[in-house]
C-alpha cells in the first residue's frame, strides 16, 4: 500500500483538522465553530461535486434535499422522539426516496432543461415548506433539543463544543472516504467518462442514464446529510433551508475551490465562511466580491483553486 503524494497531503490536512484546529481553538475563540460549519458545508459541497464536478450535471435546486435532510432529522427528534442516529437515518431515507423519484424523471433531461427544472422543483419545495407551518414552522422555523449521541457503552452530548466539532469532523471524514472510494471505483470511472464524453459512453455500451442517476442520488444523500448536520449545529431548521441561496452556495464553493476535486468544495466553504465571519461586519455587501471572484475564476482559473494547483503540481 504505497501512499501517493496526494494521499499524504490529505492525511496531513485531516490531522490538522482533527488535532490542530481544536488545539488552536483554545486560544482563538470561534475557530472551532467556524470550522464545524465549514466541515458541514464541506460535506454538502463534496456531495454536490459528485454531481457537478464528476458528471457535469448542474443542479440549481439541491437545497431541496438540504431542507429535506434537515427536516427529516428535526421532525424525527421533535415529534417522533427518535435518537440521534435513528433521526439521521430518517432524514437520509427521506432524501433518498425523493431523489430517486425526482431523479428518475429529471436526469434524462438535457443540460439546460435540467438546470431549469431543478429550479422549479426547489421553489415548489420552498413554497410547500413555507405553507406547511404546522409541520415545518414556516419561515420562522422550529428549534429542537438534539438527543445525545449514544454509542451503546458511552454517550456524547452535542452541546459540548468539542464533541460537536468531532461529530462533524467524523461525518466529514466518512463522507470523504465513501466518495473517494466511489470515485476511484468502476462507477467512478463511469462518472468521469460521462463528464468527458457522454455520447461515447453510450456507444461503448454503458448506460448513461444509470451513471447519471446514481450520481444524482448519491449527491442528494450527502446533501441531505449536510442539511441534517446544519440543523444539528443550530438546533434549528426553517423553510429558508429550502431557499434558492442554499442551492447557489455549493455551486460557488465548488467553482471557487475546484470542481471535480472533492476537496475543492471544502476549501470554497472555508473561504465563504471567512468572509461571512470577518468581512460581512465591515462590508455588508461583501457578496459583490463573490460575484467578481466567480467571474474571475471562470476567466482566469476555470479549474478553481485546487484544480489549478493540481495542474501546476501534477500530483496523481
Amino acid at each position: 500500500m504505497i501512499c501517493g503524494k496526494k494521499t499524504l497531503l490529505e492525511i496531513i490536512v485531516l490531522i490538522i483538522l482533527a488535532l490542530g484546529i481544536p488545539i488552536l481553538g483554545t486560544s482563538i475563540g470561534g475557530l472551532v465553530s467556524l470550522m464545524s460549519t465549514a466541515l458541514i458545508y464541506g460535506v454538502y459541497a463534496m456531495g454536490y461535486d459528485i454531481l457537478y464536478g464528476f458528471t457535469h450535471q448542474t443542479s440549481y435546486g439541491h437545497s431541496l434535499y438540504f431542507g429535506l435532510g434537515a427536516y427529516g432529522f428535526l421532525i424525527s427528534v421533535r415529534s417522533l422522539n427518535l435518537g440521534f442516529f435513528a433521526a439521521l437515518l430518517v432524514g437520509i431515507i427521506l432524501v433518498t426516496i425523493f431523489a430517486i423519484a425526482i431523479g428518475l424523471f429529471t436526469v434524462r433531461l438535457s443540460e439546460s432543461y435540467f438546470v431549469i427544472t431543478t429550479i422549479i422543483l426547489v421553489w415548489i419545495g420552498y413554497y410547500l415548506a413555507m405553507n406547511m407551518v404546522n409541520i415545518t414552522g414556516g419561515d420562522d422555523g422550529l428549534s429542537m433539543t438534539v438527543p445525545p449521541i449514544s454509542l451503546g457503552f458511552i454517550e456524547f452530548s452535542i452541546y459540548d463544543p468539542l464533541v460537536s466539532y468531532f461529530t462533524f469532523f467524523i461525518f466529514f471524514v466518512i463522507s470523504l472516504v465513501i466518495l473517494k472510494r466511489l470515485v476511484s471505483s468502476h462507477l467512478g470511472k463511469l462518472f468521469i467518462a460521462i463528464r468527458t464524453n457522454p455520447n461515447r459512453v453510450e456507444f461503448l455500451g454503458y448506460n448513461l442514464f444509470y451513471g447519471k442517476f446514481i450520481a444524482y442520488v448519491v449527491s442528494a444523500i450527502f446533501t441531505g446529510l449536510a442539511g441534517a448536520l446544519l440543523a444539528i449545529t443550530f438546533r434549528y431548521a426553517s423553510a429558508s433551508y429550502f431557499a434558492i441561496n442554499y442551492s447557489v452556495l455549493p455551486i460557488i464553493f465548488c467553482v471557487m475551490g475546484g470542481a471535480g476535486t472533492l476537496w475543492g468544495g471544502f476549501l470554497g466553504a472555508i473561504i465563504y465562511l471567512l468572509f461571512l465571519y470577518f468581512v460581512s461586519a465591515s462590508w455588508t455587501n461583501y457578496l459583490i466580491i463573490f460575484g467578481i471572484i466567480l467571474i474571475a475564476i471562470v476567466k482566469f482559473a476555470p479549474k478553481g483553486i485546487l484544480g489549478t494547483l493540481k495542474k501546476k503540481i501534477k500530483v496523481d
Binding site: H56, T58, E111, V115, I251, I252, G291, I295, V298, P302
Partner: peptide, 15 residues
C-alpha cells in the same frame, strides 16, 4: 457552454 455561462450569470446576479 451552459455550465460556464451559468457561473458567469450567478456572479452577475450577486453583483
Amino acid at each position: 457552454k451552459v455550465r460556464t455561462t451559468l457561473i458567469l450569470s450567478i456572479g452577475l446576479a450577486l453583483i
